[in-house]
Design a protein around this nucleic acid. Structure first.
Lengths: 237, 237
DNA sequence: TACTAAATATGATATTTATCATATTTTAAT
DNA sequence: ATTAAAATATGATAAATATCATATTTAGTA
């Protein structure tokens, strides 16, 4: 059932580049970049980088889903962001010259490039467009974080849980055949994103199931009443 | 009792520049900048920019305290950030070429410069150092937002309230004579930052008062047992 | 396949927090 | 200075959520 992992050799031929901040790079610059990056394969559950570690470069996801999480109080994990193919990760610590404040852990087998720190900084300096791309990415992440703050402050757990399912669908999409949410997060991990207890998370999913909003097939979640889910999430506009 | 407002004319003589992202600019560039900025005086409670509006430039605070807030569900205000002298505000929407997602409202009389959009973008392109400064500022704000997410997800209201008082102290400092927290936020506004109801906010401050952690002098808050406040906030390291 | 550990599920209960009600104090305007 | 409005304070109660306990199911492994 495992998907084949593509080994990327040159940035010219990279099939995710145009979906990444590097879409603005051209010709020679790309050849040069190929010399300053390495590509690695990660097994499901592996750390790409760890909290408190020092960044050595910028990670760019070729394939695979990643969670960005930090250790909160009493060691409880907090999922801050989810990343996918084309996303750069670990850029915040790199840009502000700090240690990582969070860890990146693969949710499935993944292939991720590491672009050398020095080369990346030089590229940004010589190619303002690249820097603007990075800035735009950071802007989106900041906006998302602020939306999350409003949600955590003002919505109840039921609403946030519905919102989280919509977020997962928007981020990773649906499985082609089953139409289930295309990410293998445990109930605990969903709880760690929503900001609730594992039991409450399980209970609410069970309630959504009874209410015919979703259908639980094993650990897979299928959205069967999207309008009702949107209504449950209490989303406006 | 009002503080005198300084009218800044030239960026050369700006007394907050070295505390701002513009500390990296020099000579001619500064003279040019003086031609592309305007300085405005705002009364307490005035909007600097509003949610859904289009950015026309970058705001840089000369003096005065500002809250950055967004309208949440059922119109409830959410305070996302607090800004002070030297801080740039409204940069996120400007950089990502979007409408403002939040409003900036003065908490006291303020003096704020507006740097023309085009000039600012040109400056960032010609002076990568300036762009790096902006990136670093955004990094800090993103980090702060993520810390806030962890706090909202994992701490109870009592802990968050203690944390908020420490945050206010760290951000704006203490009144010289009274040693009270140097910002005039109403209980409702504190609640809008902490993510709780106004009543719970009032009740907790009252409890802290009884517990001799703080002292309430009218609407002023004096921290009288800092170690206990830190302990109440449940802060590590 | 059988077995063990982990994950999911659900009930009972305790705790936290919001909401409603109302009193008191402070602030601002006339 | 007086008055009205707003902000703060506090009690009572309801609602939301966490925690603890214990099944049941699922997944991984010998």
């Amino acid at each position: 059932m495992k998907k084949p992992i593509l080994f990327e050799t040159g940035c010219h031929h990279c099939n995710v580049r145009m979906n990444s901040v590097f879409n603005v790079l051209e010709g020679d610059h790309l050849s040069e970049m190929s010399m300053h990056k390495s590509c690695n394969i990660y097994k499901k559950g592996q750390y790409v980088f760890s909290e408190h570690g020092l960044p050595t470069g910028l990670y760019c996801i070729n394939s695979g889903k990643i969670k960005i999480a930090t250790t909160g109080y009493d060691g409880k994990e907090q999922i801050l962001r989810l990343a996918k193919s084309g996303d750069i990760i670990g850029y915040r610590a790199l840009l502000s010259n700090e240690r990582y404040a969070s860890s990146a852990i693969t949710l499935e087998d993944a292939s991720i490039c590491l672009i050398e720190k020095d080369f990346f900084f030089r590229s940004m300096e010589t190619t303002p467009k690249l820097m603007f791309e990075v800035v735009k990415k950071m802007s989106r992440d900041l906006k998302e974080a602020e939306d999350h703050i409003v949600s955590l402050s003002q919505k109840n757990v039921r609403e946030r849980m519905a919102e989280a399912l919509l977020f997962l669908k928007a981020t990773y999409g649906l499985e082609e055949d089953q139409q289930t949410i295309l990410v293998n997060l445990s109930r605990e991990e969903i709880a760690d994103y929503v900001g609730t207890s594992t039991e409450s998370c399980i209970r609410l999913l069970s309630e959504f199931n009874h209410d015919k909003i979703i259908e639980l097939k094993g650990k897979k979640i299928k959205i069967i009443n999207l309008p009702l889910l949107i209504q449950t999430a209490n989303i406006e506009d």
